[in-house]
Design a protein around this nucleic acid. Structure first.
Lengths: 196, 196
DNA sequence: TGCGTAAAAGTACGATCGGTCGTAAACTGC
DNA sequence: GCAGTTTACGACCGATCGTACTTTTACGCA
């Protein structure tokens, strides 16, 4: 890897941490530059615009999500074990040490849902891919005979999405020590209700 | 109402709309002043600081939530009807015409969950009150004999919270036309599972 | 009608914002 | 080791940020 690419990666890594705390808009080029220990202009030379940097940060978050959540979870056996594994790995995501402010997608969704543009488009695309992967794992569970044939895979993914968000909020906003137990019980109820 | 108080209300109303789209940090005093048709300094004279304005905006949002969601929903009969009514009114909240960018609390939670201070404290307080109200309605349903005695009221509120958030996201981010149907089916499953 | 107060405007501040430019230093391939 | 390119820097741009202080305008009441 060239020196420039390495610096760029360092910048984006830092920017991802910042975005996890303060959101994509909360990234300031000046602050970011001093964080990584370089001049603002030197930093800015790596990006066409702040918006381009934000999109790169989202892409880096998406890569990290695949690495930390999707790929390990897919090691689990097809069917219900994989559905459960996807959920468990997803819960761990916002606790990742490189995301001190929690799930960066939560911030990004709140910021971008009303702001059309390439950043929003990319975000919607990645989130949709994830929802599709969740639904597909449910459909496999049906095909494997683990889940009933009348289980609505998209509805299951929708419910799962809600539980994870409620969990994130319970942890980060309320510091609720029972959040973990609650989300586990709620998800278990979902799985049990889907079983053949 | 004095002229000053009326102006203040106009400002906060506008600021609430802005916060619904761009978040509390996204409110700019200059932009807000030109929106309400007055000078920045004239506007600023009504508030001790921007943070104070943000807290006033959150308080106004809380008042509006009580007016639009809580009070109408509590007209429903005790027990399951009220639980259902709370949910239905909650769904309508982010569609309210005074919140063009959706639920202002969603934005505020993402922004404030890592930023200690009076604004965060007030937000946590209001959200906790709401969760408590939801749980209390469930407990009443148990006492009325509508729900089983082993129903966990806090867990029910947790699940309900998740469904509403999934619904908001499905609508605002994905523009999913099936969001309404899905959230209704998911909530119905929750209620049916809780029935005596 | 006039006076005192409340409300709004005016002006200015230091800081920071995203972004540009010319140039120097550092790296890379020959 | 030199040439050419990549990388980073410092200075600077106009705009806007939140906030302070002073002055003018508008209102309410006697």
């Amino acid at each position: 890897m060239s020196k420039g690419a390495a610096t760029r990666d360092r910048i984006i890594e830092r920017a991802l941490r910042a975005a996890s705390v303060d959101g994509l808009e909360g990234i300031s080029l000046g602050k970011l530059a001093s964080d990584v220990g370089m001049s603002k202009s030197g930093l800015f030379a790596h990006f066409a615009s702040k918006e381009a940097l934000q999109i790169d940060v989202l892409a880096a978050a998406s890569d990290k999500f695949k690495e930390i959540v999707v790929e390990p979870a897919f090691q689990a056996a097809r069917g219900e074990p994989r559905v459960r594994s996807l959920f468990q790995h997803w819960l761990k995501w916002e606790r990742n040490e490189s995301l001190p402010g929690g799930c960066v997608f939560m911030h990004a969704i709140a910021e971008l849902d009303d702001r059309p543009g390439p950043a929003r488009d990319a975000l919607v695309d990645w989130q949709q891919q994830w929802l599709d992967a969740l639904a597909k794992a449910v459909r496999i569970s049906v095909n494997e005979g683990h889940f009933r044939t009348d289980v609505d895979a998209e509805l299951f993914a929708f419910q799962q999405y809600g539980l994870v968000m409620a969990y994130y909020h319970a942890r980060r906003l309320f510091n609720d020590p029972r959040a973990e137990e609650r989300v586990q019980r709620a998800f278990d109820a979902l799985v049990v209700a889907a079983r053949a």
